[in-house]
Design a protein around this nucleic acid. Structure first.
Length: 304
DNA sequence: CGCGGAGTTTTCTGCTTCAA
DNA sequence: TTGAAGCAGAAAACTCCGCG
């Protein structure tokens, strides 16, 4: 994509790279219709969606028929681009639904100790006393215009804090009355919900800035597992050497975290273990007392 | 009681700023 | 140069409310 070339139009982009919204719809339909359970079976499709979306971003063109036309095109494109995280969350929920035969709607509200969280993947599908949670993230973006490529690790410190807070707040919801003095690691391991992190990352290669190293990503994910979470899975991709598309990047054999499908398997088996003999999820356990009266907090906030 | 539109809240990724 | 912190702006989800 030389700078001296005339900027491609939406028609050019669609002919060469497909339409990201259509590709996403097709992928979603395929996962549902074929009851697909493994991400590896659709990884190429996912990379195709990402490739198409990134092509539009690089060209500064908003995909046809997406977003509101009243919004300026650059803003609309940016907003559409930000939805890729929702697409990935939806995809993970669908795969897990197919693996468990349990309804798993994406982005459900779940009550934590101090506030309600919106959790990408939660089971059972209810607001209280959820037993299995997974947060998903999509990070990394190509360079466009004068903006340099964004590293897959950019902003990770913030995302990390959100993940830690959500995990701890959800576990604190039950308001454990035993209040025994015990090691943090033991408490978090035995206190529901189980929490997982599913990370999709576009690795930055070449250019003025340094490459993204998949080992670094894996170490960051592992640090979360060591301190807060029950598992983390990673899928990473990068530009093909000939620039014709994206290719998956394999985790090194000794990598501290797992590939996505391994963690999906882990989550699915955790769900299966907790199912009642009849195939229903256990009844929610309501805390006798809430450590924080959320209603009061909201009122205080509004009264400002 | 259900429907639909308007308004509000939450969440998303990435940009800017600042300091070490 | 790098990373922490805060913010931006739109989409999606949710809530509210009037109406028949």
């Amino acid at each position: 994509m030389g700078d001296d070339r005339v900027a491609p139009t939406a028609t050019d982009l669609e002919a060469r790279h497909g339409h990201p919204g259509d590709l996403w719809r097709d992928l979603q339909a395929r996962v549902q219709d074929e009851a697909i359970e493994e991400f590896s079976r659709i990884e190429a499709d996912w990379l195709g969606v990402m490739w198409s979306l990134d092509a539009y971003r690089i060209a500064g063109v908003a995909p046809r028929g997406m977003g509101k036309t009243t919004v300026r095109e650059s803003d609309r494109l940016a907003a559409i681009y930000r939805t890729k995280g929702n697409w990935f969350a939806t995809l993970m929920a669908l795969l897990l639904q197919n693996r468990t035969d349990q309804p798993i709607p994406p982005r459900t509200k779940v009550q934590g100790m101090s506030q309600v969280h919106k959790i990408d993947v939660a089971w059972p599908a209810r607001e209280e006393d959820v037993l299995v949670c997974a947060a998903t993230k999509v990070t990394g973006a190509p360079a466009y215009g004068s903006t340099p490529a964004r590293s897959a690790l950019s902003d990770f410190s913030n995302r990390r804090k959100e993940l830690k807070f959500a995990a701890a707040d959800l576990k604190l919801y039950r308001g454990d009355q035993k209040a025994e003095i015990e090691h943090w690691g033991q408490w978090r391991a035995r206190t529901p919900p189980k929490t997982y992190f599913l990370w999709a990352a576009r690795l930055r290669i070449g250019g003025a800035r340094s490459d993204d190293d998949i080992i670094r990503l894996a170490l960051e994910a592992q640090a979360l597992v060591n301190s807060y979470l029950d598992g983390a899975g990673l899928v990473a991709w990068r530009l093909k050497p000939d620039g014709s598309g994206y290719e998956g990047v394999a985790l090194p054999p000794a990598a501290p975290v797992s590939v996505l499908d391994d963690v999906l398997t882990q989550i699915a088996s955790e769900i299966r273990v907790q199912l009642e003999p009849g195939g229903a999820p256990p009844e929610p356990l309501r805390p006798a007392t809430r450590a924080v009266d959320v209603t009061r907090l909201l009122l205080d906030e509004e009264a400002r």
